[in-house]
């Protein structure tokens, strides 16, 4: 028989960290949707699952107090300072948040497209990031806003930019005895436009053939002050296209400039042929969709 699995439900971050550091082969989970599939198919056999679902103050969208996710976390950032997401916030929480839709439309869009509603109701933003699939929608959305991860470990908390978190498919800089606690998203400032587009074959319950995010923040004169272009399934991990961002920054945003950003992003995309999709098609879609997503963000109008 397979080694018995333990299922532990700590009531605090400290307790969770202590379990992770004492039990070898323990794995933190929140919604557990990905991990459970792995266990069932025997691709994965952790000794214990440490559930983060019952720890207070890990599921919230601050400052949005209207959602189910609001757990009354006392301190936090204000609306002017961006948003603070508890790592155990579900994709469904983000989907249901009108506030997120207004202030972080690309994150809202990305989270709303993950799996089915049933999966979004339990799968968490933190889990999607830590699972580190190349297609992780919410990570591609959050990369646009220079999100920072708050990671708790035995030595206390540390912060790491999301863009530096991923190492490879399924591999991150999260230590074995660490958990992701919060995702900090700074206020992108006024005149920010962003969108996320999940390119799929069918319309529901899909892994993206390609995920494309774009964000531009214009200065008072209408020049691009800051640009972010992020891609899913274009590399072994969710990535930014720094080259495309360079094309956009400091320029007057036009349809032609957006198209050029697409060309540059495509030229630099690390696409490859897999049975799920052909490399040339993915590259071409980067070229086509980057300018489209910029247009969809509303920045051009």
């Amino acid at each position: 028989m397979a080694a018995a699995l333990d299922y532990l439900r700590p009531a605090s971050v400290a307790e969770a960290l202590s379990l992770l550091s004492t039990i070898e082969g323990a794995q933190p989970v929140a919604g557990a949707t990905d991990v459970w599939v792995g266990i069932r198919s025997k691709k994965h056999s952790p000794k214990a699952l440490v559930s983060l679902k019952n720890i207070p103050n890990l599921r919230f969208i601050l400052p949005d107090r209207e959602t189910d996710a609001y757990e009354g976390r006392a301190e936090g950032v204000t609306g002017d300072s961006g948003v603070l997401l508890g790592a155990a916030t579900t994709h469904g929480d983000v989907e249901d948040s009108a506030w997120m839709k207004t202030h972080f439309p690309a994150v809202h869009q990305a989270c709303s497209g993950v799996g089915s509603r049933q999966v979004r109701n339990v799968a968490t933003v933190g889990g999607n990031i830590c699972n580190a699939a190349p297609c992780a929608d919410s990570a591609v959305g959050l990369l646009l806003y220079d999100a920072t991860l708050v990671i708790a470990g035995p030595a206390g908390e540390r912060e790491l930019p999301l863009s530096e978190f991923f190492v490879g498919p399924g591999e991150t800089r999260l230590g074995p005895a660490e958990i992701l606690k919060e995702v900090k998203v700074p206020n992108p400032g006024p005149r920010t436009y962003a969108w996320y587009w999940k390119h799929t074959r069918r319309k529901g319950v899909e892994l993206p053939l390609l995920g494309v995010g774009a964000r531009v923040t214009l200065d008072a004169d209408g020049m691009v002050e800051k640009a972010r272009v992020s891609l899913g399934v274009c590399a072994p991990m969710p990535t930014r296209s720094y080259e495309a961002e360079k094309v956009l920054e400091g320029q007057k945003l036009t349809a032609e400039l957006a198209a050029e950003a697409g060309e540059v992003a495509a030229a630099n995309a690390l696409v490859r042929d897999t049975w799920r999709g052909r490399g040339w098609y993915r590259r071409e879609m980067v070229r086509v969709l980057v300018p489209r997503v910029i247009k969809l963000s509303g920045a051009l109008s």
């Binding site: 299922y7 439900r9 557990a32 949707t33 459970w36 599939v37 699952l49 559930s51 679902k53 089915s116 049933q118 999966v119 109701n121 339990v122």
Partner: peptide, 10 residues
């Protein structure tokens, strides 16, 4: 929720 992916302990 999809109960096939929901740990009973949870």
């Amino acid at each position: 929720v999809t109960s096939c992916l929901y740990p009973a302990c949870e």
